[in-house]
Write a protein that binds this DNA or RNA. Structure first.
Length: 611
RNA sequence: GCGCCCAUAGCUCAAGGGAUAGAGCAUUAGCCUUCUAAGCUAAGUAUCUAGGUUCGAGUCCUAGUGGGCGCACCA
């Protein structure tokens, strides 16, 4: 019994230390972090100027209604905005409003706007291109790598729960989605000024550990576990479910083992602890490969005592009841949601009660403005039940946003992958194959570099391809898994973006020092379009964060890279004669490279120097 | 049975209620003695069906059709 208590105490101390570290991080950020004001970006500044010009016209006193975008190709104009919504709010004709606004803008143009015109409910703007271009490059130069950050949510704390693999199971491509969508969102939230807490809520508790312990005690092979822990544990898990078909009674034995575990049986707890440690070590190397980090790694097991306490509290408050027939603790149907259990009839805890305890822990410990759960769509009902119950119980303070960030499943042949059925594609296999293929291509292309450098390049490309293929797709839909497409290293993949950056670096190397000029200037429409695209980066990042949609960033980066590659094929920067123009082009290219590199970094994808 | 999600080009995916629905792959025709062709230029093909709301619908509503997921002692 002592031994087991030691194990739990040790684990408790580890968690306590990481909690202190997170509290310190939040505290330090509150005190020392500097933010880039969103209003400082040229597009945002222009929006504010336009609103000032328009204000009072037609009795409209709104603010923050101008949202500039690109004018479509068939319209002559550099930027545009629409007034439909706001005209509707004031019961006015959109076309009349747009016309009035455009004449108003033409009266007090300022130094940026050349001409405004109305078309239907749209206001189209032709800019003084030289002025805009210069300001765009100057802004990017002034902010350097921090171009794109904003202060919209400065100081707010967000807890992001993602990855959450289950102990004793390999990480499959399903958990990959949670891991990389969560990691990308954490980066995007940080970019918007949030203090982010990256929380890996490990699935290290539950009835399946009873099954695993039964399987281990019955068929376990020590040598095999030493050799390949996760694989062997997975085999035991699969074998258990095969045997259940013929011997249903082992299910009860498993449940009983779990109950004993929860009652802190020393022998079982030590087995559990060992499996947990082995698994975490294995996950750690996968995370390292992916470049994903966490502030907290707390398993469900940490919350069992709280869970039992809370269930009793809720029973006392009649928020749930003991079912007379079975003895389990039930939350009755409410708010249109089906009833569910908080405690098993044998007294063991359940996922839901541990989740309630965890939610309360996060609120009490970190006082966050938002908690995001990056968990698959198939758990949607559970989260609706969780949030609804916690709201009724008064566990959710006002002003706290809790949100389930669901995502579609990864399907093979239209079916969900399953550890039990053995259709799971393991992440390590996938990454391995992708890196291997990248290696072949790098070798075939004859890229320069030592063998270590070539390995690093293949790693960046191979891993990047897997991450990007997932992140570029909208979160909510299912993804059909296709080896061929997954390992495709051409257009529409991370490689395209990495390649664009590498090309730019090659130019910069050839140029040597990029000098400075008083005024940035450009020559062709392509260059201007590129700079205009570049200036959309800050608002794209904000949009991607607010919509919890990393794929918006992917789409943008591809458009930017495409605009650059067109430019690249039109003119030679190295051979540009005129000094001012040549320097401006170099600065523009460098800015594009920085934005793509930073955009990819937010998606946890790295860019090699050569490829 | 009830609930949630999805349906866009041959395939895989984009498109904040806004202007002529965009990419990649595949197919076809061009572009490397000149900054890395993992690139660029150009060509053809699409909103599941039927109603409705709206100045305006791929997007919102209703009813279908097809697919996925979930609904008590798993997580």
């Amino acid at each position: 019994m002592e031994k087991q208590t030691d194990a739990f105490q040790h684990y408790g101390r580890e968690v306590a230390a990481s909690i202190d570290a997170v509290k310190k991080k939040i505290h330090d950020e509150k005190k020392n972090r500097s933010y880039i004001p969103f209003g400082q970006y040229p597009i945002e500044k222009l929006e504010v100027e336009l609103e000032a010009m328009i204000k009072g016209k037609l009795g409209i006193e709104d603010s923050d209604f101008v949202e500039l975008g690109h004018a479509p190709a068939h319209i002559s104009g550099d930027l545009c905005f629409e007034v439909f919504d706001m005209a509707k709010r004031h019961g006015k004709n959109p076309a009349a409003v747009a016309l009035s606004f455009s004449s108003c803008i033409n009266e007090g143009k300022g130094n940026m706007i050349h001409e405004a015109s109305a078309f239907g409910g749209f206001v189209n703007l032709v800019l003084h291109k030289d002025t805009f271009y210069h300001q765009a490059l100057a802004c990017s130069e002034a902010l350097g790598d921090r171009f794109g950050e904003n202060d919209r949510h400065a100081g707010a704390v967000v807890v992001i729960d993602y990855s959450a693999p289950n102990i004793a199971k390999p990480i499959g491509v399903g958990h990959l989605r949670s891991t990389i969508i969560g990691a990308a969102l954490a980066n995007l939230y940080e970019n918007s000024g949030y203090s982010t807490i990256r929380d890996n809520h490990i699935g290290d508790w539950g009835t399946q550990f009873g099954a695993l312990i039964y399987a281990y005690k019955t068929w376990g092979d020590e040598a095999a576990i030493e050799r390949e822990p996760i694989r062997e544990l997975k085999n035991l898990y699969v074998r258990f479910h095969e045997e259940v078909a013929d011997h249903p009674e082992i299910q009860d034995k498993a449940r009983n083992y779990f109950l004993q575990l929860e009652e802190k049986n020393a022998e079982l707890a030590n087995i559990w602890k060992r499996f947990r440690d082995l698994s975490l070590r294995d996950f750690g190397s996968t995370y390292q490969r992916l470049g994903v980090t966490f502030d907290l790694t707390i398993g469900e097991s940490y919350f069992i005592d709280d869970a039992h306490r809370i269930v009793n509290e809720c029973l006392a408050r009649a928020l749930c009841r003991i079912d007379h027939e079975t003895g389990a603790v039930v939350v009755d149907e409410a708010e249109g949601l089906p009833s569910f259990l908080l405690r098993k009839k044998d007294g063991a805890s359940l996922y839901m009660s541990r989740d309630i305890a965890c939610l309360r822990f996060r609120i009490e410990t970190f006082n966050p403005a938002a908690i995001l759960y990056v968990v698959g769509n198939e758990q949607e009902l559970n989260f609706r039940q969780l949030f609804s119950f916690c709201r009724r119980a008064g566990f959710l303070p006002a002003g706290l946003a809790v949100e389930h960030i669901g995502f579609g499943m990864v399907l093979t042949d239209g079916k969900k992958m399953s550890t039990r059925r053995g259709t799971l594609i393991e992440l390590e296999d996938l990454l391995g194959q992708s890196i291997e293929k990248s290696k072949e291509i790098v070798a075939r292309k004859g890229t320069d570099g030592s063998s270590d450098e070539l390995d690093a390049i293949a790693h960046a490309i191979g891993v990047g391809a897997i991450l990007y293929n997932d992140l570029k797709q909208s979160r909510v839909k299912n993804i059909s898994f296709d080896w061929k497409r997954m390992l495709d290293l051409e257009g529409g993949s991370a490689v395209y973006l990495q390649y664009t950056v590498v090309r730019i670096h090659s130019i910069l190397r050839k140029l040597g020092e990029v000098g400075t000029v008083d005024t940035y200037r450009f020559e062709g429409q392509t260059e201007f379009a590129l700079a205009r695209k570049l200036m959309m980066f800050p608002s794209i990042l904000l949009k991607a964060q607010e919509a919890n949609a990393p794929h918006h960033l992917c789409t943008y980066l591809e458009e930017l890279a495409s605009a650059f590659n067109t430019f690249y094929n039109e003119v030679s920067i190295v051979q540009t004669e005129q000094h001012e123009l040549k320097t401006s082009r170099a600065v523009l290219s460098r800015a594009v490279a920085r934005v793509i590199r930073r955009g990819l970094a937010l998606l946890n994808i790295t860019v090699p120097n050569r490829m």
